Amino acid sequence: MTSATARVRSAALAAGVVGALALTACGGSGGDDASSSAPSASTAPSGNAASPPVTGASAGIQGSWIAGAGGKIVALVVSGKQAGIFQTGGTMCNGTAGAENGAQVFHLNCSGGAKDRTTGRVDSVDGTTLKVTWSGKVGQETYTKAEGGKLPSGLPTVPAR
Results as ranks from 00 to 15, higher is better:
Q82D: 14
A15Y: 10
L21P: 00
I85E: 03
K150Q: 14
P156D: 07
D123L: 14
A34K: 14
A59G: 12
I61T: 08
K150A: 15
N101F: 13
G89H: 08
A34N: 07
T144I: 13
A15S: 13
V105H: 00
S153H: 05
V17F: 02
T133A: 10
S79Q: 14
I85T: 13
T142R: 01
G63E: 01
C93S: 02
G89N: 08
R117G: 00
G68Q: 04
G30K: 07
A44P: 00
Q87M: 13
K81D: 15
P156V: 13
S111R: 05
T91C: 08
S40E: 04
K115W: 02
H107L: 07
P159Y: 01
K72P: 01
P45E: 10
D123S: 11
S153N: 11
S46E: 10
T119A: 06
T55M: 05
V18S: 12
A34I: 09
G47D: 09
G90K: 06
L155C: 05
A34P: 06
G30F: 03
E147C: 01
D33P: 09
K145M: 01
A146L: 10
C93Q: 02
V132E: 02
N94P: 01
D33N: 09
N101C: 06
G120P: 05
A34H: 12
V54C: 02
T55Y: 06
A15H: 09
L76C: 04
I73C: 04
F106C: 03
A34Q: 10
T24M: 07
T24Q: 11
K137R: 12
G149W: 08
M92G: 05
G27T: 12
A103R: 14
V138T: 15
K72S: 14
T24Y: 11
S79G: 12
V105N: 02
S40L: 03
I66R: 02
V77E: 13
A99N: 12
K131E: 00
G102W: 08
V18I: 11
A103F: 09
I73G: 09
A25R: 14
T119M: 09
S51H: 04
Q62S: 07
G136T: 01
A67Q: 00
A20D: 11
G89P: 11
V17I: 15
G98K: 07
D123Q: 14
A11D: 15
G60T: 08
G136L: 05
A97Q: 00
Y143E: 00
S37V: 12
G71F: 01
Q82R: 11
A103G: 02
Q87W: 02
G139E: 05
W65Q: 09
T55Q: 06
G71K: 07
G98Q: 00
D123M: 12
K72G: 08
A15V: 09
Q87N: 10
L21F: 08
S10W: 15
G28E: 05
A15Q: 13
T88W: 03
S29R: 10
G70N: 07
A6M: 08
P53N: 06
